Simulated assay, not measured.
Amino acid sequence: MPENIPQHVAIIMDGNGRWAKNRGLPRVAGHHTGMKAVKRVTIAANDIGIKVLTMYAFSTENWKRPKDEVDFLMKLPQEFLSIELNELIEKNVQVRMMGYRDRLPQHTVQALEEAIEKTKHNTGLILNFAMNYGSQRELIEGFRDITRKIEEGTLHVDDIDEDTIHNHLLSHNLPDPDLLIRTSGEMRLSNFMLWQLAYSELWFTDVYWPEFTERHLMEAVLEYQRRSRRYGGLH
C-alpha cells in the first residue's frame, strides 16, 4: 500500500438495526455485533498507520429512538471498554471522546473517562468516540464563544478566520478528516462534522456496519489513494 495513508478517518457506523432485522434479531443485537466491528477496524487502522479514527457512536438526534434502545446503546461503551481496554492499551491506542456530557448517564461518562485517563499518555492511534455529538450544536456553541470574546474585547470581528472557527470546535485538537466512510448505503452526513468535512473525501458502501471488516477499510483507503485532492484548486 503506498505511503498516502489518510491521517484522520471518520466513520458513520450505520445499519446495525437493519442488519439485525434481516436476521430476525432485535435491533440491539445489531448494536452489540457492531461493537466487534469497532474493535476490528480500530486494530486495522492502527496497523496501517492511520493516526485518528473518529467513530460516530451516538448523535444528539439519537435520543429520539425508543428508550430501551437508547439505554442499551448507553451501556455499550462500558461493555466495549471493559473487554477491550487492556488490548487498546497494549496497542498504544489513545481513547478520546468528542461530544456533550449532558444527558449521558453517569456510567457511560465514567467508562469513557476511565479509558481516556488510562490511555492519555499513549502515542499511537487516537480512537475518538463522537458521543452525544451533533455538528450544528457544536457550531452554535462555537459561535457563542466567539461572540462572547468579541463582547469582552478579547477578539476583533475582523480577526475571525477559518482557524478561529476551527479552534472553537470540539475537534480543535485534531486535524480535519481526510476520509469519511459511511456504511449501509445511506448517502448523507447526518449532522456529523459539517465544518470539518469541507474537503474530506467521502466513501459510501452498502455494507452494514456489523459486517464491515478490515478488507472494507482497505478498499476505502485504496479508493482515497486513487483520488486527487485539489482543495478547490487545480493540480
Results as ranks from 00 to 15, higher is better:
R144E: 10
Q225I: 07
H156L: 14
L170Q: 14
H121P: 00
N22T: 08
N122C: 08
E138T: 06
A115M: 10
A115C: 12
G142C: 12
K64L: 09
W63H: 09
W195K: 06
L127R: 01
T60R: 10
D71W: 04
P210L: 08
L81S: 04
T183F: 07
D68V: 06
W209G: 04
R65V: 00
L155D: 04
D163R: 12
P77M: 13
L174W: 01
Y208S: 05
D102P: 00
S135C: 08
T147E: 08
G153E: 07
T183D: 07
E79I: 13
L85G: 03
H32S: 14
V157A: 15
D14V: 09
R148H: 09
S190Q: 10
K149V: 01
I126F: 07
A57G: 07
L73N: 12
F143S: 15
I89F: 00
R137G: 04
P26V: 11
V41S: 01
D178L: 02
M97S: 10
I150N: 13
I165W: 05
G15I: 05
M97I: 12
D178V: 00
N4C: 07
Q78R: 13
T60G: 11
R226W: 04
N132E: 11
F204D: 04
D159N: 15
H216A: 06
V157W: 11
Q110A: 13
R137H: 05
H168R: 07
K91Y: 13
M55Q: 05
K21A: 15
M13E: 02
T183N: 09
Y199P: 03
R40E: 15
M98Y: 00
N128R: 02
V9E: 01
W195V: 11
L125V: 10
K118V: 04
L76N: 02
